[in-house]
């Protein structure tokens, strides 16, 4: 079947066969590899995207279920040549080690700061509870967002 949806602001169509996840459709059919595939069971958050305004795991969304929906991936959080303040904060704090978890953290943190521009440390931790960093670089990740929260966006 052909799925038509709005991806990072642009009308997009993709062909899907069988029960494909949105994550696989984004990576393999659309060619946007920013969302990472690791656990495929909603545990790690590396595939986080925003679907119709809600932060969700794209590995748990059926591709066909986004017909007519709006999807924002990490590729769409900022313009082509600029960083989102969330990305800048992570860069400055050295919050990236291997980088595999980074897109998921970026999407989850952008979602957090949109609804709450100055979260407390515990609000930051709660908002990121669904994102796992296998390099265990949580210290720097949390610090990045504490600094961003202090500064305000």
């Amino acid at each position: 079947m052909i799925v038509s949806f709005k991806l990072n602001g642009e009308e997009t169509t993709a062909r899907v066969t069988g029960p494909l996840s949105l994550l696989d459709m984004l990576r393999d059919e659309v060619g946007l590899p920013g969302s990472k595939s690791a656990c495929e069971q909603g545990e790690c958050g590396s595939c986080s995207i925003v679907l119709d305004g809600e932060l969700v795991c794209s590995c748990l969304v059926l591709a066909g279920d986004v017909e007519g929906s709006e999807v924002t991936t990490v590729e769409g959080v900022a313009g082509a040549d600029v960083l989102h303040p969330v990305q800048e904060a992570m860069h400055e704090a050295g919050a990236v080690q291997c980088g595999f978890c980074t897109p998921g953290f970026v999407v989850a943190a952008v979602d957090l700061f949109e609804s709450n521009p100055s979260p407390t440390t515990s609000e930051i931790k709660e908002a990121l509870a669904g994102n796992i960093c296998r390099c265990t670089g949580y210290g720097a990740i949390i610090r990045a967002f504490e600094q961003l929260a202090g500064r305000g966006t």
Partner: peptide, 27 residues
């Protein structure tokens, strides 16, 4: 039936089930 997919899609991703006809309820 498919609602949020947080149970069903795990089963699908791991090949435990392969639904032929899905009724998407999210919207």
């Amino acid at each position: 039936a498919l609602a949020g997919g947080t149970d069903l899609m795990v089963e699908v991703n791991f090949g435990h089930t392969r639904p032929e006809n899905v009724v998407a309820l999210r919207r």
